[in-house]
Design a protein around this nucleic acid. Structure first.
Length: 263
DNA sequence: ATGGTTGTCCCACAA
């Protein structure tokens, strides 16, 4: 079973790229972020025609997440608990049945947090605290759980081509990295780092200043696995070639292969 | 140091 995460930066602008990639990649579950669409505007028909079930949590103009799955959804949950006032669409959870039992998958879009002297940074940190709380509760279930998404966190210097350029940025501040480590230290496995120590495993290249041409990338899209999911981890791949396509997203898909099959 | 780009939507804002 292949599970992917991809920040597509606008589903309407990226629909042709998305469909093309779905056809070539043969993934079972796809977590999308920054769909930038309300639920009614999501181009579900063309995706369903490829054999996917579609669940979205959208909002107008910004943010928005979705899960596309060849498996039927047994359950869907929207919104990260912990703040009733939070209107931003950044979290959707699906539950599936596999030949090895239940599988939980989350598509999350963690707040960017810049500029750091604005309310956006405390919002990011409090969102991370809520995610920590939620994850702690879910881990108690001792189920295969995949937390997939755009974390807007550069975990370590080796996750950036030019780490010094990110000092002081909300994606790389010590407090950000500490909150991310605290989450991982609950017992999660970073799927990519569990399978490779290679350099240049970036998932995002800015549109500006020729970042792609210079390979000036960062790794901010992650698949974090519960112990039960990590037991099933076979391989991880970054679909870097999609960044070279016409009208690319600034992020590329990251795909983890687990040792289970649709039930 | 600054500016460089893209998507959404109506004018900047977010990234």
């Amino acid at each position: 079973m292949k599970i992917a995460t991809w920040n597509i930066n606008g589903v309407k602008a990226r629909i042709e790229n998305l469909l093309h990639w779905l056809e070539e990649a043969d993934v079972d579950i796809v977590c999308l972020q920054e769909i930038k669409s309300v639920d009614e505007g999501f181009p579900r028909d063309r995706i369903e025609a490829l054999g996917y079930h579609v669940e979205t949590h959208g909002q107008k103009g910004f943010n928005g997440v979705a899960i596309l799955s060849k498996l039927r959804f047994d359950e869907v949950h929207r919104r990260l608990p912990g703040d009733e006032e939070d209107e931003q669409a950044r979290f959707v959870e699906g539950v599936f049945s596999t030949n090895k039992g239940v599988l939980r998958v989350v598509s999350l879009y963690l707040p960017n947090g810049n500029p750091v002297d604005s309310p956006k940074y405390p919002y990011k940190l409090s969102w991370m605290e809520r995610l920590h709380q939620w994850t702690q509760e879910r881990l108690a279930l001792e189920e295969p759980l995949v937390l997939a998404g755009d974390y807007n966190v550069i975990p370590q210097p080796q996750d950036a081509k030019n780490p010094q350029a990110w000092v002081g940025d909300a994606l790389f501040l010590p407090q950000t990295r500490e909150a991310y480590r605290r989450l991982v230290n609950l017992g999660l496995t970073d799927a990519l780092r569990a399978t490779t120590q290679e350099a240049d495993t970036y998932t995002f290249w800015d549109y500006q200043a020729g970042a792609w041409q210079k390979n000036n990338g960062i790794r901010i899209d992650h698949l974090l696995l519960s112990p039960e999911a990590a037991d099933q981890l076979r391989a991880v791949e970054i679909a870097k070639h999609t960044r070279g396509w016409e009208k690319p997203s600034d992020h590329v898909p990251v795909i983890a292969e687990l040792d289970c099959m649709p039930a």
